[in-house]
Nucleic acid binder design. Sequence first.
DNA 1: GTTAGGG
DNA 2: CCCTAAC
Length: 612
Amino acid sequence: MVVKRRLNCGFDFSGVPKAPRSTRRKVSSERDDVDSQLTAFDLLASLAGKLLEESESSSTSTYGDSQEDHLVVKIKQEHELVYNDKPCKSELSHQGNLSSKSPSDNTSETCLQVSSLENDCVLEQTPVSDCKMALGLKQPLVGCGNKKEDCAVHVEQGEATNGLEDGGLIADTFSLKGPSHESVHLDGVPNGSLEGYRNHSKLACRDDDDENYCTYYKFGDKCNKSYRPMTRVGYRRIKKSMMTKHGRAVSRSKCFEDTRTDGCLKSLYRKRKLCYGYNPWKHETVHRKRRLSDKGLVVTSDGGLSSESVTNSPQKGESVKLSIKSFRIPELFIEVPETATVGSLKRTVMEAVTALLGDGIRIGVLVQGKKVRDDTNTLSQTGLSCRENLDNLGFTLEPGSSENPVLSLPTDSTNLSERSAASSPALDSIVPLRLLHADHVINSGTCVESKQELVPYQSDITADEQQPPSSDSRAIVPVPPLEPEALAVVPLNEKPKRTEISQRRTRRPFSVSEVEALVHAVEELGTGRWRDVKLRSFDDASHRTYVDLKDKWKTLVHTASISPQQRRGQPVPQELLDRVLAAHRYWSQHQVKQNGKHQAAAMMVVESGAFM
DNA sequence: GTTAGGG
DNA sequence: CCCTAAC
């Protein structure tokens, strides 16, 4: 007999045989999990289409060169054709302006991710803190294009609310996450097909099951001409091959992705940091969203701090001249209602940025990739007296208070995902905006490429905020493996309590379109063929196992059975719920005669009149 | 490996 | 979403 491992269970059910499954009827009041979120988001849809075309036709253009200060708009969207077997997905990335909006329809909820907000700024014999101060003054730092020579001073007064659009604050990456933003595949994107759009921009792809971000770069002329997939580029494929059909094994074999020698535990640990330390706010949002609004736009800005260029010219001996071309602002977490105006979005982002900076951040200094801890040493003592060494100078953004950076974060060892998944009140009270990483690097240097080569797994943690260098920048110094201190922001107590190999997957609310696909499949296939449902309608969604689909159906039936007032979460269209009930009713009666499925389905239509 | 149901 | 039992 299997011994129940659960400890918090008052009673050990292990000895209690379950009834035959055919008679096991669920009676428990299942928590309403139907708060499906992340339904379709069509903002920028038209742009997406356009960009898709362009991306297909342009491969080596230098388009991106002249537009580096534009937003990089990454759109992932899934269009589901109800009667198609499989959803049709499109994804693309592009540099563009947020203002190039497109018709947004209702489709629902959306996750908008601002990967970074970037400001060009130059420190010229200026203490970093001054720049920081400037950043905190609600003064958008006006970008200066890609000619660093033109960037002498870039702290200019700007309209606080116009930052995004007017270049005051430059968000270099927007990810608009559609219903199934998770199912992003670079596989289908020919290498370099989007090249023209990001000469120095990143393409971050979110990998399904593990919330990994793999990041691709196109570097400027100074370095490499082509995309350099991160070392883990093959990960997805490898992973896939290792997955069981239903994907469940993945969560238990995550360590294989580790290409280093750290071993499985360490890998898992890193992974955990990535998944849960890195993005706890995502979970946080879920709950806050649930609490605050029915329809909300989740704006997540995650980014780092990085510089695109540093110029230095030793003047009169000791003087050091630094130019930090840009700051990337670490992860922000913002929530605005779907009905909010673009202007208010801008304001919100602005406030968030300001608050973030105002919260206080520290700057770390890296020399030759090593952190310089002694603040009392002079630069020359630190070895920064010569130009060559300056090239190896880097900066990191670190949480402001060195003592306990994570003010509001609980310090127990329960990992964040669990906490947030449990709607921890403590988490709920967290200011929705916080510096998450300190491993964002501003640096100067010479070879961007080596950054990846030397620090392959940095992408694990900061993939989405890795900073692509501008084409003419001096590029980025190789950054050493992250220092523990540098990323101690979130996981104060890093040792996860549960050392087990297993790690709960992150919750992935079903989008309306997914629900629709599910309903449609079940209408045709019935409720006992989840594997078929999976293969039929969710074959591409590697993060949806047939068990997930079954579970979702379960909750859908429950949701449909209760009054609308009792429902929580993102509303599922009543029409869909009706279909759920109808299909459920039908298949409850007809599950025996499984032989003539299609006939049954056809009959079902006739009988219920609710389908199709 | 799938399915059904409880946790 | 996880876990387990029963297929």
